[in-house]
Design a protein around this nucleic acid. Structure first.
Length: 449
RNA sequence: GGCCUCAUAGCUCAACUGAAUAGAGCAUCUGACUACGGAUCAGAAGGUUUCAGGUUUGAAUCCUGAUGAGGUCACCA
């Protein structure tokens, strides 16, 4: 959307492909997998690796409880559980570049990326550039050295490094662990720098969940203190969590709705619904499959897009696959219907010259025109607010207005030839705006459905 | 516990940033010229905007307090 209004946009994505969490998965795999691979189990790579992350946490929890039962206090137990010790050791080995660890790391990451690729491709997501944390964290460490030199950061006796933000009303923030390994924010310092050097951006918009508000504030402050020119351009577009009716999604407890499963489910519903209506009997089977995908994804994306991103929302899988009302399929249907009418009308009308019956507009026609005229300003608004939901709402209203117009007035058998041309043109414009608006939301609209 | 968000119809969301009768969709009920594609359209019903104070000509919106929900305060990312 930003691109559409004249900004030059570089979509980037940071993959946190290193760190203690990866080590945990790797360790659990070594301990429990007995040589299993995604291929041997038939699982998607990212799911497969995720499973071992969960296994690690289960085992970790068990060990901690065991230690507590032996009379150890909670904090010590959390630190001394052997499996956690091992994970930490592995992280150090990784940063030292030990071959065995590196090899395992590459192998498992490969699995994960394969899984991601499939999903991203399916939902039509793409990035101009992907950063890997494994590439940026070293630069982050360099940033820390710089911070130390300029006095923004201080090194404590045990070797850990901190940024003092207390005079800004915040606490001290750890930037390097005492064993010299880097933490989350270290990598972010490097990333900000790397991005700036490459693009000299005016604005760098971080789309991150609102639970990291504090983190982003700290990041910006540190950059500012270090006198980085890009500190002011760093903007945090925080979004609220998506919850389930049954409660929050927690990866550790397995209460997540998996994107792949959800999409499959919705495709199934789209299929049933379409078959019920029996309007596309002449479609080839691969056309059908792509149609179901378009509808299912359209429904899903629209459901997420229509809400102000800053707020938390409850995602009800059952409701999202409802194709009535304020939904993606409603709009797709409207578009398909317009196309059908236009098709029937032939092409002669396109060359016909518009007429000057300014006084003779009926209310339904006027309403539609008014709607169409608002489109540019709506985009503008969505842009400045970083809020795509205004587009979603607008397109929905447009479709609704058009449907009203459509049922009140006949297009093909209009009172006069002039009216017919006018209405055809209005219909065509509506279809274009719907197409364009939905495109901005990353949603496709079918010619027929 | 400190700090930060949020609370609107039974449910999911709006309300142009202080303005006139608080709007949509779902669910519920009633209808649609004998369907240019009915995945549609027209209508009904549904509200003390969590509670209690305050500021203002005017408050869902701003301030204070209460209650409830979530987040964050890690040598996790």
């Amino acid at each position: 959307t930003l691109k559409f209004s004249g900004y030059k946009v570089i979509k980037s994505c940071i993959v946190n492909d290193r760190g203690i969490h990866i080590c945990k998965s790797m360790l659990a795999w070594q301990l429990f997998a007995k040589g299993a691979t995604p291929a041997s189990t038939g699982m998607k790579g990212d799911h497969f690796v995720g499973e071992y992350y969960v296994k690690f946490n289960d085992e970790y929890k068990r060990q901690v409880e065991e230690l507590i039962a032996k009379g150890m206090n909670k904090d010590d137990a959390a630190n001394q559980a052997p499996i956690m010790q091992a994970a930490k050791q592995m992280l150090r080995d990784w940063e030292d570049g030990k071959p065995a660890v590196m090899e395992l790391w590459k192998k498992m990451n490969g699995w994960v990326y394969d899984g991601f690729d499939i999903t991203y491709k399916r939902i039509g997501s793409d990035f101009d550039i992907i950063y890997y944390e494994s590439d940026t964290y070293l630069l982050g460490k360099k940033s820390v050295d710089e911070g130390l030199a300029s006095g923004v950061m201080i090194k404590k006796d045990d070797g850990s490094v901190w940024a003092d933000l207390r005079d800004e009303g915040m606490d001290e923030k750890l930037v390097i662990r005492k064993d010299g390994t880097s933490v989350y924010i270290t990598q972010d310092l490097g990333l900000a720098q790397q991005k700036y050097e490459k693009y000299h951006y005016d604005q760098s918009i971080y789309v991150i969940g609102d639970e990291q508000n504090y983190h982003m504030k700290a990041l910006k402050l540190i950059l500012k203190k270090m006198g980085k020119p890009y500190a002011d351009g760093v903007e945090h577009l925080s979004y609220g969590m998506v919850e389930l009716p049954s409660g929050k999604m927690k990866s550790r407890e397995g209460t997540v709705v998996d994107a792949d499963e959800l999409i499959d489910e919705m495709v199934e519903v789209a299929k049933q619904k379409t078959e019920e209506l029996g309007k596309v009997k002449d479609f080839e089977s691969n056309e059908l499959r792509s149609l179901y995908d378009t509808i299912a994804l359209g429904a899903l994306k629209f459901f997420l897009m229509r809400v102000d991103p800053k707020k938390r929302m409850v995602f009800n899988p059952e409701e999202s696959i409802d194709f009535h009302g304020f939904t993606g399929p409603f709009i797709q249907y409207t578009h398909a219907r317009i196309k059908s009418v236009l098709l029937k009308a032939g092409v002669n009308w396109q060359s016909a010259i518009g007429n000057q019956q300014s006084g003779g507009l009926l209310k339904a026609e006027k309403d539609l025109i008014v709607m169409l005229e608002q489109y540019p300003s709506v985009i503008q608004q969505a842009c400045t607010e970083h809020n795509p939901s205004v587009i979603a709402i607008f397109i929905y209203n447009l479709a609704k207005t058009f449907n009203g117009f459509y049922t009140q007035l006949s297009v093909l058998s209009a009172e006069s030839e002039e009216k017919k041309i006018l209405r055809l043109k209005l219909s065509a414009m509506t279809a274009n705006v719907i197409f364009s608006g939905m495109h901005l939301l990353g949603i496709r609209v079918p010619e027929r459905m």
